[in-house]
Each structure stands twice: as C-alpha cells, then as structure tokens.
Amino acid sequence: MTDATASPPTIPRRRLDAWPLVLVPALALVALPLVGSPTSWVTLTVAGLAMGMMIFVVASGLTLIFGLMDVLNFGHGAFIAVGAYVALSALGPLAPWLASGDPVQTVLALLTAAAVAMVVTGALGLVFERVIVRPVYGNHLKQILITMGGLIVAEQLIRVIWGADQKPMPLPAGLRGGIMLGDVAVEKFRLLAVGVGLAVFAAMTLVLNRTKLGLLIRAGVENGEMVEALGYRIRRLFVGVFVAGSALAGLGGTLWALYRETLTADIGGEVMVLVFIVIIIGGLGSVGGCFIGAILVALTANYVGYLAPKLALVSNIALMVAVLMWRPNGLWPVSKR
C-alpha cells in the first residue's frame, strides 16, 4: 500500500462526495422565487459570492491550522484586525497611486498593502505560535483560554498603537462603482474579492494536492505521528502552516476592512463568529468544506438580509443547525479526532 513505486492508477481513489456541492446552486435557486426580481437576485448572489470569498480567505487559515495541529486558535480574529490596520497604514504612503484612479495602479497599491499586511501577520503568527500556543499543544481547554487571552491582549494593543476610535478605510476611487452586465450592476470591489478568493482557493488546492509539501501537510492532518516517524520534521510544517494561516488572516482582514470601509479594533471578533460558523459547517480541518461553507453562509446572510434584515445573523445559526442535523461533523469532516 505504501509502496511509492506502485503505478498511480492502482491507487484507490476516494469517491468524491458531491452532495455538499449541490447545496450552493440549490440554495441560490430556492432564493430566486423568494427574492422575486432576477436583477436583484443576481446582485445579491454576486455580493454573496464576494462576501463568501472574503470569509473563506479568513477561515481557510484557521481550518488548516486546526486540521494539522489540532489547535483551535481563538486569537485568529486578532490577526484579521492587525492585517486590516497594517493595510490601512501601508495605504497611507501609497495614496498617490490610489488617487490616480487608474485601475492598474489602484490594484497594485492594494496588492502592496495586502502583501505588507500578510508579512506582518505572518511574522506575528510566528511569535504567537511560539509564545502563546506552543506550551499548550494537546490541551484544548487551555488552548481556548490562552488564545482567547491572546485575542484580548492583541485587541488592546491595537487600540494602544492605532488609537481606540473608529477609522475610515475608504474604498479607492479606482474600485468604486460597478460594471454593468446587461441590466445587472456588479460592484468592482466584489469582483476583485471573488478573484482573490478564487486565487487563494486554487493556490491552496494546488499546493495541497499537487506538491510534496501539500502531501506532507495532508498526511500530517491524517496521522502526524506517522509522518514524523518517516523522518519529516512535522514541527516545521506546523510552524509553516501557522504562519501561512495567519498571513491569510491578514489578507482576509484587508479585504474585510475595504468591504466595511471602517475599521475598529473589534473587527476580528465580529468576523470570527462568521468564521466559526463556516468551519463548523464545512467540517473542521477541511479546506473544500470551508469553501462551500463560506459561500453558503454568505449567500444565506445576503438573501435573508434582503428578505428579512433582522434575521441575518440568526439565519446563519439556523443554517449551521440544519447542516449539523444532516452531517453532525460538518460537510466534509477531515479529522476523526
């Protein structure tokens, strides 16, 4: 079985469990008659997809960290907030590029800001892993408590560094407005978000499924001790995944802040609730499940927000309950722990 020289076609492939995939179009179709007008339906759907992508970017790092390391980082929200604030600071010097209104320069400026945010949150992740998380591997209760403590401290430090008041983070002029596709207006920023989300998903899928690193990570998720016994330093993998996950949180924070157009220090906590719902729906540790879950949550939130605004957040809980009734461990559970 483990013979590496065995010809690939003989390896039994796990049958693709396609039911969760059907959920997304099914949800969208159910919503169509409820919403009524097709144009608002398309607008809502595109907006939902964009929001789903942003949530996915944030949640993917968390679910990967959980899958590989069995660490649930409640402090992930802090990385989101730090990413958003760093991007805001990085956009300051780049203001001339943004002011030009030229789409290419705008996107370049945003990419630079996002890259800075990712580097900072990645570095922070390295420190966080070493100082906060490492001493409590294998102890869930302490993990929850201590990462929660880390979240408080980080949120307060943000207030110390950037001030406690709300900060505006205006969407650059080049990304304002929308593109008309027939009757339907699609905001440019939403398109950008969808693009970024798809790119992250594609990159993650490729790395996880087509590279040796990805193979090791997946093997580590399934059975870490075995990977270690085969001579790979799983600790390094751990740290790498933690840093990558934190950097993704930074990217997600940047997108989320641009979407909200205002920044407060508790932005992280707010997103975390959505992120938790998403990774519970998706199945802890699963990237694909996280992707589906994020889209489901965002679409539901958007449709319900349009139909009955007061029920938006409650609708997510209802969605989570419904999914868990169907599959108690989420759509595509990875870990058997």
Partner: peptide, 16 residues
Amino acid sequence: VRALFYAMITLAVASA
C-alpha cells in the same frame, strides 16, 4: 461532539 465544537457553537449562538 467535542469541547471545541461546543465553544464555537456557544460563541455563535451568544453573539446572535
């Protein structure tokens, strides 16, 4: 399910 699930679910329900 496990303690972690419960922590996350209660967080979501409480914030809702």
